[in-house]
Design a protein around this nucleic acid. Structure first.
Lengths: 236, 236
DNA sequence: GCGACATTTCGGCCAATGCCGAAACATGGG
DNA sequence: CCCATGTTTCGGCATTGGCCGAAATGTCGC
């Protein structure tokens, strides 16, 4: 008889994620931004009371953390580890029983560029990863990457800062892309890249969605720095 | 309003894992071996009828796959992706609300060496990873590794075969060790290493447990090939 | 302080589902 | 062929837990 305790505790966490309303809230939080209880209620499709209960339980289990701000209460994912669980579950859910998502216009925006917790996913995410790899700035292999010395210089020149970090988080890992089935950059590098591109206003968040919009400045900047051609936008 | 469908399907998978009985069965299957319905019932602590229902549902969702053999019915995890979900959940469950596992003798055996789905975990897993890294056979970084050319030679000499594989599985990733909180080798390399060491009879599976036993031959072999000292056994 | 808004607490309803006993299929061995 | 063993199906019981309406608490702007 193997250790029941561990089975039980993973069951407790999984059960928490295993409710459609809570799963929808967590999926929404995968966008990386903190959301208010009300917004989460809308995402989940249940009333505010119900949502409150769900959030309390998830906060108790340390899946999310609340943050008071005025009369709102913001919630965000408690840690990258939580994001990894959701990510792993998404992969499984996507493969499983043959499920063909009809591709709507909203989907199209998400496929182009979106946030994935704290980094960039979608075709833009792949393009950035490919570019950095081709230029010899990083070497990718099996779920992680190594930053080369040329890469370190490149990051410094581009204003992407990696040193300010709570130490134990992986520097450069990859994350399997939900829509494209190929890995993009995650980890501290992925997070820093998203932050920098937002700072530069090359990309911008979209209200109420995980989709990212590429700005005019972004088109030039991405072309110049990462060699992403201007006509990339009109391509599949 | 974000995509409810995806939230629902990950909820379905999570809900399946979120039952203590089922979670225990999946944990047991993390040992990497196929187990019979009866054995799984014992692991889960429920009757055979109940187990049968659980297994049917998990097979339906493609979390496990059944395999008929005589009057037994063997079940194993359906894919490495399923293992990753369980793994990610374990990390979360271990960190969460401060949970101090009292260390029993059975636990001690597991901490020393055990299987983790299809590769080696515990202190032996770490020692192997450390050894290969120190010898320059692999370079580890953030959740994955790269096999050097010296490493390729080393693996060939040691009889560890990587080429026979269904292609898309990562070659060398790492997996966060539940007991030691440091990464050990997983992916195809980890799997091949486990297989080879079992073939050589340097290590042996333990009935009814994920623990691995190191044989006499193993002590010498590991010392000679991986530089793991003979007194390693008696160390913390 | 007062009204508008965001969130939480309480109470009760209802559906979903995990569990087991009993019995029905399978399968292999004598 | 029949019995022992492993596994599944069926039926019914009990519990869990998600949901909402109503009302309380907190917080902002005036």
């Amino acid at each position: 008889m193997s250790n029941i305790a561990s089975g039980n505790t993973i069951a407790a966490v999984a059960a928490l994620i295993g409710d459609p309303a809570r799963a929808n809230m967590l999926s929404a939080l995968m966008g990386g931004q903190a959301l208010t209880a009300g917004e989460l209620a809308r995402h989940a499709g249940v009333t505010a009371q119900t949502t409150s209960g769900h959030l309390a339980r998830m906060a108790d289990a340390e899946l999310v953390v609340p943050q008071k701000q005025g009369r709102h209460r913001y919630y965000r994912l408690a840690s990258p580890e939580v994001a990894r669980v959701i990510e792993a579950l998404s992969v499984l859910a996507a493969e499983g029983p043959k499920r063909h998502h009809p591709v709507g216009p909203r989907d199209e925006a998400l496929r182009r560029a979106r946030t994935c917790y704290d980094h960039i996913a979608g075709r833009l995410g792949l393009a950035l990863a490919d570019s950095m790899q081709e230029c010899g700035h990083i070497v990718l292999a099996d779920g992680a990457g190594i930053i080369t010395s040329a890469g370190t210089r490149f990051l410094a020149e581009t204003g992407i800062n990696l040193d300010s970090s709570p130490s134990k988080r992986p520097l450069c890992r990859t994350c399997l892309d939900w829509s494209e089935r190929r890995p993009h950059l995650a980890g501290r590098l992925g997070a820093a890249l998203l932050t920098r591109l937002l700072d530069l206003k090359w990309i911008a968040r979209t209200p109420d969605s995980r989709a990212l919009r590429i700005t005019k400045a972004g088109e030039s900047g991405l072309a110049q720095t990462f060699g992403i051609p201007h006509d990339w936008h009109s391509r599949p």
